[in-house]
């Protein structure tokens, strides 16, 4: 529902520039662009617009439209007492997962860029979390951490780290941290490979030139490699922000049975509004807020970090 809405619309920078010829060119291109535009309108703009519309309607719990609601749905959101905690969780979730993922991926990509025996095998291994279903990976960890029959809990007790099994998935903060760990794990493959691709576009003569000029490995990395990696880093970060922000399955599996809202992000809260509180209209309002937040975050990121700057 929300994922389609937050997909960035295709840019139109490849259109020819300038005056009348530009309009003529656009008109000529229209029959060819038409199907694509229709598709984008059908799967992106229509659902997003419909969601915005429902956020201003009063819907019964089965979706019957009972007329306009004005800003009532948004007002109900503001009155929701757990909202500050949920927003804080969302910030911790997105910033934590994305920062840790990117840092780990930078290290991994650097490592995989070097030639060493068995590199092909290690590269394949790193893809595994990507190939496995997220729900499956999460469920494996969830059962492993179960206090009654989880093998991870049993192991921690056997080696003496714990006196008795601990409910990692039964308390808000440890469960939330566990979910963040899994989110990093499943985000690593994509990020690492994006950065690895970026590293391989950096010509060796640049690095050699830096060495000739007497730059040490750390200086070379900070002054030469990292700036050249900027476009790849930008893609990896933005896509991760969107993915992590909208991620539902990991939290749904790990923190789904935890009472209260201490382990919720705005995305999981949308589902609680629908499934537990039966408030489709409030959920739509929160989806719109969610959409605006992710848009704002990306704008700020683009403005402050200027990842696309070429210098």
């Amino acid at each position: 529902m929300t994922t389609t809405a937050t997909r960035p619309a295709s840019r139109s920078s490849d259109r020819p520039r300038g005056g009348r010829s530009r309009w003529a060119a656009t008109a000529r291109a229209l029959p060819w662009l038409g199907p694509t535009l229709l598709l984008v309108a059908g799967v992106v703009f229509f659902p997003a617009g419909y969601m915005a519309w429902t956020s201003f309607r009063d819907l019964s719990q089965f979706g019957i439209d009972n007329g306009p609601a004005g800003l009532d749905n948004y007002a109900r959101l503001l009155e929701f007492t757990a909202l500050p905690r949920v927003l804080l969780n969302t910030v911790v979730w997105v910033v934590g997962v994305v920062v840790v993922t990117v840092l780990l991926s930078l290290a991994l990509a650097q490592f995989l860029d070097k030639a060493f025996p068995g590199r092909r095998f290690v590269r394949l291994t790193i893809i595994v979390p990507w190939a496995a279903s997220v729900v499956m990976t999460t469920t494996v960890v969830y059962y492993g951490l179960d206090p009654f029959y989880g093998i991870i809990n049993a192991f921690l007790v056997d080696v003496g780290l714990l006196d008795q099994p601990y409910g990692f998935t039964r308390n808000a903060v440890p469960a939330f941290l566990t979910a963040m760990g899994i989110a990093v794990f499943v985000s690593l493959p994509f990020t690492t490979y994006t950065l690895l691709a970026g590293l391989q576009t950096i010509p060796t003569d640049v690095r050699e030139a830096a060495q000739m000029d007497g730059a040490g490995p750390w200086a070379t990395y900070r002054r030469i490699i990292l700036p050249l990696l900027r476009p790849a880093l930008a893609v990896a970060t933005i896509i991760n922000i969107i993915n992590v922000f909208n991620s539902l399955p990991i939290l749904a599996v790990i923190t789904g049975s935890i009472p209260g809202y201490n382990a919720d992000t705005t995305t999981t809260l949308i589902f609680k509004f629908i499934r537990a509180d039966r408030q489709i209209d409030t959920a739509s309002a929160l989806s719109i807020v969610n959409f605006l937040i992710v848009l704002a975050v990306i704008l700020v990121y683009l403005k402050v970090v200027k990842p696309m700057r070429e210098d």
Binding site: Q61, S257, P259, G260, K272, R275, D277, Q279
Partner: peptide, 19 residues
């Protein structure tokens, strides 16, 4: 009672907090 579905949802997601 039409409010029961939401009450049931609230019980499911909140009553465990008595812990």
């Amino acid at each position: 009672n039409e409010a029961w579905a939401a009450t049931q949802g609230a019980l499911q997601s909140l009553v465990g907090q008595i812990q």
